[in-house]
Amino acid sequence: MKNPPAYGVTSVDHALQLAVILQVEGPLTVSEAAERLGVARSTAHRLLSTLVYRDFAVQDEDRTYRVGPVLEIAAKTQSNAAAIRAAALGPLRALVDRLDETANVSIRTGRTVRFIASVECSRALRVGNREGMVFPAHEVTGGLVSLAALGDDELTALYSPATADGSEERPDLAKLRTELRAVRQSGVALNLERSERGLVAVGRGVTDSAGATVAAVSVSMPSVRHSPHRLKEVVMALTTAAEAISAALVDGVRAPSRS
């Protein structure tokens, strides 16, 4: 299980959290930043000023902060992430209330998956907040769900180009195709310590108004609390959450725009 580093510096962690929020959700004010981090407004202002100095953020005339040149390109590739996150937060909290395990929503970009929303459970032993974390798509449930929505030709094209230095760990495509067929049939992906030791996760797809898989909702738990007998309960709760998020996305598309 991935845990925060013992040597972590709080101010650095807060600055990185703000950078992720700006990249994924869009502009925010000093007050909103302070509320999200649970810090004083003066602290939030110093953090945002530092991000501006390093070109991770810029301040607009209305005194809100948005992504700067360093993050702008990446932010443009995830323009729908904020809408998905907004649609997901309510269902995620309901999912945590129902199962008392940490719940997440992730999106795929190429061969990687980024967690864009995370709600922790209240248990002492729990999977921590994963918001902003990035993993290889074939290693996590959200990635497997998203990859299962691709055709064989699309999957081949996705994994054909090699990285320049050859450092990227590439999956066995024959084995991955077999796994993805099982995900398509069941609609659920299972991660039994695949990405991290001591962690089990179950994921299900989130669809847009056209029925395309645009994200995945998942539940993560310590492996000591997982059992095959509990899987049915988890899948039922995930299905409810996925349907609620999908419905919220559709309602968002139908809602009249404000001018």
Rank of each mutant, 00 (worst) to 15 (best):
S227W: 04
A189H: 13
F135S: 06
A237W: 12
R184K: 14
V39M: 08
R63P: 14
L150P: 03
R181A: 11
E179I: 08
R63E: 15
A88S: 12
L95P: 11
E131Y: 01
E196F: 06
M133D: 00
R123T: 14
S106H: 08
T102N: 13
G142D: 01
T109H: 13
A237V: 01
K2C: 09
R130H: 11
A242F: 11
L190Y: 14
A237L: 07
H229E: 03
V183L: 07
L47Y: 08
V235S: 04
L199H: 12
R123Y: 02
D62M: 13
R225A: 13
V140T: 10
D100R: 15
P91L: 02
E139G: 08
D62Q: 14
D60K: 00
L28T: 05
A86W: 15
I107G: 00
A210I: 02
G187D: 14
R63H: 06
A33V: 02
G211F: 10
L71H: 01
S79M: 09
G128T: 09
S259I: 12
H45C: 07
L16M: 04
E101D: 12
V24M: 09
R130P: 05
E233Q: 14
H45V: 03
L231A: 13
G252Q: 00
V235Q: 02
E193Y: 08
A15N: 02
P69C: 05
A74M: 03
G26D: 04
A81Y: 04
E131T: 09
A44E: 00
A124I: 05
A248I: 06
V219N: 00
E101Q: 09
R194F: 03
E196A: 07
C121A: 13
V219I: 06
V202L: 04
L95S: 03
T156Y: 02
D97G: 11
N104E: 01
V20A: 06
E196R: 04
Q17I: 15
L155D: 13
I21V: 02
A103M: 10
I84C: 01
D153H: 09
N129C: 14
G203L: 08
P222G: 00
A182K: 00
T50V: 09
A149E: 06
R36S: 07
V39Y: 04
V253K: 10
A148Q: 11
R66H: 08
L51W: 00
S42A: 09
L176D: 08
E72T: 08
E179F: 11
A82P: 10
R254K: 11
A210Q: 13
L28S: 08
V200D: 02
F115P: 09
V202R: 05
V119T: 15
V58G: 01
L92E: 00
G128N: 09
I84W: 07
A212E: 04
S218K: 06
A44V: 05
E72P: 07
S79Q: 07
A57T: 12
T163K: 15
A34H: 08
V134G: 05
P27G: 03
A57D: 12
V70C: 02
Q59I: 08
R123L: 13
R114L: 00
T10Q: 15
R54W: 06
L249Q: 05
V234C: 04
T109M: 11
L190V: 09
A34M: 05
Q17T: 15
